[in-house]
Design a protein around this nucleic acid. Sequence first.
DNA 1: TAACGATCCGGACCGAGGTCCGTTTAATTT
DNA 2: AAATTAAACGGACCTCGGTCCGGATCGTTA
Lengths: 227, 227
Amino acid sequence: MLYAGFMSSTLPPFPTPQEPVENTPVLLELGTDVDEPCLRADAARNRARLLDAAARLVAEHGAAGVTMEAVAAAAQVGKGTVFRRFGDRTGLLTALLDHSERKFQASILSGPAPLGPGAPPVERLRAFGCAALRRAADDLELQLAAEPCPDRRFLVPPRQVRYGHVLMLLRQAVPDADCELLAQTLMGYLEPALIHHLTRQCHMPMDRLQAGWFDLVERVTGSGGSR
Amino acid sequence: MLYAGFMSSTLPPFPTPQEPVENTPVLLELGTDVDEPCLRADAARNRARLLDAAARLVAEHGAAGVTMEAVAAAAQVGKGTVFRRFGDRTGLLTALLDHSERKFQASILSGPAPLGPGAPPVERLRAFGCAALRRAADDLELQLAAEPCPDRRFLVPPRQVRYGHVLMLLRQAVPDADCELLAQTLMGYLEPALIHHLTRQCHMPMDRLQAGWFDLVERVTGSGGSR
DNA sequence: TAACGATCCGGACCGAGGTCCGTTTAATTT
DNA sequence: AAATTAAACGGACCTCGGTCCGGATCGTTA
């Protein structure tokens, strides 16, 4: 089993001063929506409240309105509690995205082909890009706001899952290439910041991005039968 | 003349409340090191002092030590002055990188082949990547710290210059492709954050990144004569 | 050189992210 | 049910990026 060990899951930091607290990632367990495994009753209640309040704030004032203090106030909870639960702002925003990210992951891991297993790798790659583009297009704002600082951007669980997936497919499609690097390149095309730039600032239609993805996959995997 | 109009140049914000103050980019003028065109005597003096102080702070405490207040203090200048001159922290850090960025741009625009004009486009593309990788490797820390927020990352002059260059070369190499998108893809491979991840976190040697670039260019331009 | 207006300076001020630590509370044990 | 302990809570506090505006300075014009 390839990437067991870093299913998305809102990275639960519980940053009690001691112990580095790495990401305690939830193993797959596709159906069950195991969130925070063991959490004291009050903690769980507050966590739910906070996520709810945060979502409300996003809906009302956009991602920029999600201030840690505002969220705390809206959830009638102390500010420290927010940080204890989610580590930092990025963590909170990531948690907000967690549900849809999980669905995305699930459909990749075990959904119907060609996104899920069963189709040939290049075809799955194509499908993956389309799905990723779509997912990026929805709540782009949140994805941008949730972007961590540069030196953590590549260590975040959702990214690792996607990377692992692309890597696996690439290894099947072009076994002789340096697939790690090619995978990073492909991932770069799906970066929220780039999508935002191309669609919102350059006004490209999504169709074009999608066509671009197909073309890129074809070039990278050398699967261009005709040309 | 292709990309006249956005030579790097530390984006001079002079954010006097009114007027949007867009980037007033310096036209090429390769030899002359025209910095801030017209700047009052005291302003120019303070600007120099600030850059000097900032460089000193970087040398001593790393990029993280470059606090706007610390820089102001070290330059014996008010905090407001720093912001007036450089707009924000990103602007200051960018200004620090400006000198080497300009040299880089110059050698691309008019240096010796294959980096400069004269070589066939694919070869220039290869050379460009090598140079960009080298440049990213030096003062990686600064480049990371200077990274703007996601929705400005692609609008920053140095990035636009590089993009324009790659775009031009790609258009020569693969006239029928969607070169805008391919150019963005290639640029993604050279992103400082990615270089940092691959070299510092994955411990890949630079040689491998370089080989990866060659391979990528070959795949993207379809210039693989043999395989 | 005196006066004037545009530009610049400086530091008080604000908001937001993040930390700390004394206090409270939920679970467990006796 | 009382005691115990680990965990969670809350909000004061700190730092830092960014803004504002009254006052000082520079360059120019008369």
